[in-house]
C-alpha cells in the first residue's frame, strides 16, 4: 500500500501522522511538498494538520489552491482515498471535496484538549476498526473548528450517513458542554458521498501510541491499512 502525506509551509502534524501511518503500515509514507504538481501512484493521501500558509485569508484557503492540491482533488474524484485532519479538513472544505466550512470557535479561543467522539458510522475504510456508536478519546487543537453548513446540507449529511464522528460526553451522550467549538449538530468529522474522503478536526495521530497517553486514534490508521492493503 502506497501512502503519502502532503506538506505545506506551516504544516506541523505532518511528521506525527507519518509516524502513526508507519506504525500501522510497516513502512514510511511518502512526504510530498506542496509545490509538486504531479503525484506518484498512491492508495492513500493524507492532508495533515497545522497552519498552512499561516492561515492567511481563511484557514485552508491558500493551501486549497496550491499546485499539489489540484492533483489531490483530481485523485480524490478518481476514487483515491483522502484523509484530512484538522487543517487538512479545513483545506478539503475549501477545495469543495467536502461541504461546509470550519469557522472560528464559538469561544473565540484556541482549544487544545482531549475530547470524546461518538463513532457515527463504522461503515467506511476510515472507521471500520471502530465499534459503531462506540466512544473514543482523541485530542483536538484548533482555533477554527466550528463546523458550519446550511440546514439543507446538514440534513443531507445526516440522511446519507455521512457524519463520521460527533463530539459527545464520555458516556456517548450529546451535550453542549462536550462540544468544544460550537460545531453544528456536534459534527467532528464528515465523509464525502462515496465515503472515500474523510475530514475531521480531532487528531487521531496524537493518541495512537500508549507512550502518548492513549491509542484510540490508532484504529483509524489500522483500519485504513486493513481496508486498502
Amino acid at each position: 500500500m502506497k501512502a503519502a502525506v502532503i506538506v505545506f509551509p506551516g504544516s506541523n502534524c505532518d511528521r506525527d501522522v507519518a509516524v502513526a501511518l508507519e506504525q500501522s503500515l510497516g513502512h514510511a509514507p511518502r512526504m510530498i511538498w506542496h509545490g509538486e504538481a504531479t503525484l506518484p501512484d498512491l492508495d492513500l493521501i493524507v492532508v495533515p494538520g497545522g497552519f498552512s500558509y499561516g492561515d492567511y485569508l481563511r484557514s485552508g484557503a491558500m493551501a486549497a489552491h496550491s499546485p499539489v492540491m489540484g492533483e489531490v482533488v483530481a485523485r480524490a474524484k478518481a476514487g483515491v482515498p483522502v484523509l484530512g485532519i484538522c487543517n487538512g479538513f479545513q483545506i478539503l472544505t475549501e477545495t469543495g471535496l467536502l461541504p461546509g466550512v470550519l469557522m472560528r470557535n464559538a469561544s473565540l479561543k484556541f482549544v487544545c484538549r482531549d475530547v470524546h467522539l461518538r463513532v457515527e458510522s463504522s461503515q467506511s475504510m476510515f472507521t471500520n476498526a471502530y465499534e459503531e456508536s462506540g466512544v473514543v478519546r482523541i485530542p483536538v487543537a484548533h482555533m477554527d473548528g466550528n463546523y458550519f453548513a446550511d440546514e439543507d446540507t446538514l440534513d443531507g449529511l445526516e440522511d446519507a450517513g455521512r457524519i463520521a464522528f460527533r463530539y459527545c460526553a464520555p458516556d456517548g451522550a450529546s451535550s453542549p458542554d462536550a462540544n468544544p467549538n460550537g460545531s453544528a449538530r456536534d459534527i467532528a468529522g464528515i465523509f464525502n458521498r462515496e465515503r472515500t474522503v474523510l475530514g475531521l478536526m480531532p487528531h487521531p495521530e496524537r493518541l495512537s501510541d500508549d507512550a502518548l497517553g492513549g491509542h484510540d486514534g490508532r484504529a483509524l490508521f489500522d483500519g485504513l491499512v486493513a481496508a486498502l492493503s
Binding site: 485569508l57 484557503a61 489552491h65 472544505t93 461541504p99 461546509g100 446550511d150
Partner: peptide, 9 residues
C-alpha cells in the same frame, strides 16, 4: 468566487 470569499458563509 475562487479565492477571496468563501461563498458558503
Amino acid at each position: 468566487q475562487k479565492l477571496l470569499a468563501n461563498t458558503v458563509i
